[in-house]
């Protein structure tokens, strides 16, 4: 299990399930997952499209979109539950304690307002600064994220920035109130390949300087290898393997993780997507019985099709796969 410290982790997700009620029954998109992120730690979350990564991130910041809803489980920030807060209580946490960076910088900023106005409103909502002080802070932030001629750019509108520059502005906005955790959901997927590495490096450096923890959702194993402290691999709404980044990359146990990692040595940023495993992830209404990965798994055997494996500790990792069930004493 997770290392037991005296103090609770910064963020803890316990047995979270997210479902969508539909006319033809309830779809379970995130199924009983548990995660934790410590102070200042970078947790990489990987998995194919539809694995439930974004839903998990949205649930943490309390912005699950209707009709999606948390079916069960708890989300704790510093040991206090935040999944059952009112909209207003949660609003105070968003931005101040947990910041967010979304995928597409081109659409994350309101086109009708200058970046200064968007920064200032964010700063003022979370601090006691007056407009003048907030504007000074906005300038500091723009400089910190590396916008050239930041002073002049304050009064620019989003459309006057390139994609990479806009994502820098988005990062400045996410950091505006010095949150302790940032949920970065594929922050570079929509960007030009040539600037993806810069943005990731920037995010990593700023968070390291401030001791901000990051939940970094990405498709890019190279980014994970360079940035994350720990990794959680998701498949069909479940965490199938998690552990320290070196251990998951070099010593993957779950056949799905091994598949993902297979191409790492030849990898350049952004060139490789997670497409090297044959077959596709099941749709939510057709998740196979037993291990959800069994139709695509090379090592599949009888038990995989009947019973669902739970996470158990193998060396430094936790793995949900029947291959290891006999190696270790008990089911965790």
């Amino acid at each position: 299990m997770a290392p037991q410290n005296d103090s609770p982790p910064l963020l803890e997700v316990r047995n979270l399930s997210i479902e969508f009620p539909t006319r033809r029954g309830t779809l379970v998109a995130v199924d009983d997952i548990s995660l934790h992120i410590d102070q200042g730690e970078v947790l990489g979350v990987v998995g194919e499209s539809g694995a439930g990564k974004s839903l998990t991130g949205n649930a943490i910041i309390g912005l699950l979109e209707h009709p999606g809803r948390i079916a069960s489980g708890e989300i704790l920030l510093n040991g206090k539950r935040i999944d059952n807060l009112s909209y207003e209580q949660m609003r105070r946490i968003r931005g101040r304690d947990i910041g967010a960076v979304f995928q597409d910088p081109l659409t994350s900023l309101n086109p009708l307002y200058t970046v200064s106005r968007q920064l200032v409103e964010t700063i003022k909502v979370h601090t006691d600064l007056d407009t003048g002080a907030a504007r000074a802070r906005a300038l500091e932030l723009l400089e910190a994220v590396g916008i050239p001629a930041a002073k002049e750019r304050l009064s620019s509108y989003p459309h006057e920035f390139s994609g990479g520059m806009r994502q820098r502005v988005v990062i400045a906005l996410a950091l505006a109130a010095e949150p302790r955790l940032i949920i970065a959901d594929e922050p570079t997927t929509a960007l030009d390949v040539s600037i993806q590495a810069q943005i990731i490096a920037l995010l990593k450096r700023l968070c390291a300087e401030r001791g901000t923890a990051v939940m970094l959702v990405t498709h890019d194993m190279g980014v994970i290898a360079e940035t994350a402290d720990r990794v959680a691999v998701m498949y069909a709404g479940r965490v199938v393997e998690t552990g320290p980044v070196a251990s998951v990359i070099q010593n993957a146990h779950h056949p799905y993780t091994s598949g993902l990692m297979g191409s790492i040595p030849h990898m350049k940023h952004g060139v490789n997507r997670l497409t090297q495993i044959d077959g596709a992830m099941p749709r939510l209404n057709a998740i196979p019985q037993g291990c959800a990965f069994n139709p695509r798994c090379e090592k599949v055997f009888d038990r995989c099709r009947k019973e669902r494996p739970e996470l158990i500790s193998i060396e430094q990792n936790e793995v949900a796969c029947w291959l290891y069930q006999s190696d270790v004493g008990g089911v965790s």
């Binding site: 910041i61 912005l63 909209y87 609003r91 105070r92 946490i93 968003r94 931005g95 101040r96 910041g99 967010a100 979304f102 597409d104 659409t107 994350s108 900023l109 309101n110 086109p111 409103e121 964010t122 909502v125 979370h126 988005v170 906005l173 996410a174 505006a176 109130a177």
Partner: peptide, 16 residues
């Protein structure tokens, strides 16, 4: 739109 979701994620009030 994304910018509305992002505005909420920044903790702006409902009214804003």
């Amino acid at each position: 739109t994304d910018y509305i979701k992002f505005a909420r994620a920044r903790g702006l009030s409902n009214r804003a």
